[in-house]
Design a binder for these strands. Sequence first.
RNA 1: GCACCGGUAGCUCAAUUGGAUAGAGCUUCUGACUUCGGAUCAGAAGGUUGCAGGUUCAAGUCCUGCCCGGUGCACCA
Length: 587
Amino acid sequence: MLNHSLEQRLRAAVAAILPQADLSTVQVRPAADTKFGDYQSNALMALAKQQRLNPRQLATQVVEKLDVSDLCEPVEIAGPGFLNFRVRPAALAARLAEAARGEHLFFRPAERPRTLVIDFSSPNVAKPMHVGHIRSTGIGDCLQRVLQLLGHRVISDNHLGDWGTQFGKLLVGWKGQLDRTALASDPIGEMERLYRVVNAACEADPAVLEQARQELVRLQAGDAENLAIWKEMLRLSQDQFDTLYRRLGVSFDHTLGESFYNPQLGAVVADLLARGIARESEGAVGVFSERTLPPKEDPFLVNRDGEWIDDPALVRKSDGGFNYMTTDLATIEHRIRTWSPDEILYVVDDRQAPHFRKLFLTFARWQPEAAGRVGLRHIGFGKIMGDDGRPFRTRSGDTIRLAALLDEAEERALAVVREKRPELPESEQAAIARVVGLGAVKYQDLLPNRQSDYVFSWDKMLALTGNTAPYLQYQFTRAHKVARDGGAYDITALDRVVPEDPAELALTRHLLNFGLTLEAVGEECRPNYLCNYLYELAVLYSRFYENCPVLKSEGDRRVLRLALCDLAARVLRQGLNALGIETTEVM
RNA sequence: GCACCGGUAGCUCAAUUGGAUAGAGCUUCUGACUUCGGAUCAGAAGGUUGCAGGUUCAAGUCCUGCCCGGUGCACCA
């Protein structure tokens, strides 16, 4: 919104003074403190330093070339060279009027839309989805929604773990110990049981391990019986995934699991060998360090007892099988060929950071031209902890199934709804509890900086005050109700009235920053920026609502306030939606 | 041992990546209300940003060295 207009003009002014300057660093951002105005730019200080100029003098020269008088009060130069912009209420009101007319909702589509592939969720076949999948699924879905909203072309791809060593064990179990009745009632539970039983047997008896290996080899060689069983396991798992994704409101454009790339793996390794990028070692094939990087920064080296030794990326095991490095290389190649993305985002646990460093470097060595056209980014995240400071598990130490977790969230939310809204019919209570419960889980997960671990807490996520989904959802219902009770309003009045009350002004200013928040989320892949923006919006709306009577006010003032309620509600709903969180009109 | 990610108020977390006096929530204390939906709002208290140096107009953020916690270190993904 306004920051873009100011930025453009500032860049023009800078270019007039310093024609050779890098204008991309010239940015206008919301002011750190409202006493400095609405927006500020710190860019001239950095620029002056770079060019060895006096920062205040440069600022003075630039400001002389800068005409923003239609939008702002005269630009102030403060401290060592900050530029402070104080937007005129009429300019704020004009943006409100545009939004009220439906011309925008305080954001605009990107000027240069990009194509992005987002790789997220990626659960394993034959295993239950558990808490560990919340983060990848929630963050990935949020990024998908935000980037789409900004007009980018987004391709979401669920890279299922559907082809790996675990299937050898599963096949042994399926053939020897399958309980058909159990499979019918709880297919995932039964497959999980089979895996556990055989896995334990493998540890106790090398013969069973060998048996599993042979089943895997047969499967990978295309044995009809094993393939049929594998497909059955896949189908049963996909049913589970579909149910959970529908419940979470998450969708994918593609579900190309690891098995999809199986036919290419041999060629990938052959090509790497032919080009001299990979070589044989101890019977396996791996990509080794080129020794061009300092050892500390080289992911293909590891220090053992003071000595730097090779830590290659293996692309073929000594038994001839491939591993996920190979699959991931083939996957990048396929994605580039198919979609020509500007970027591929991997929303995957931070523990895999070393893998991705190796993967990206290996791909760059393998296909330098293609690698030059695509940005490969690992969007890592931390763990979910219990309140005991250890990874979040059940009391008995088992992983918590995602379905059970969502059930509990809805149950706990329902208890609150029953207490607060006993007069509502049961079906309505349940509907509210579903939206609030799921929202609470998702919001708690998106709120912390994604790189840090966070502590899972039912009480905190479902609290009705503080920075939680229920609080935001509640503020939405209040704003929405007032806007609805106010009825239709005369939009043309917004051309005659400007925000004056401090609460009106603060809310208006904040609404205008929705777009830059979405952009920041999209660029840095940090949903928490949006969470914090929405929380602040809710707080500012509450303050406005306490201080400024809406329905009891009159004339143009009433229209302005109604519009603020309406727009606050719309931004809250749109913003929550971008987080993958629903709203409800009654709570 | 080496690398990566963390360490910020009593607790849980922010800080738009080098900007102005480090912000929220919870907790505690105080206040507003027969309400435009109180599942509300306002105020107060709370800090040597793990420690020690360094870089500069400016450091929670960058550099160096330590201390704590977590994670990862070929043939699982």
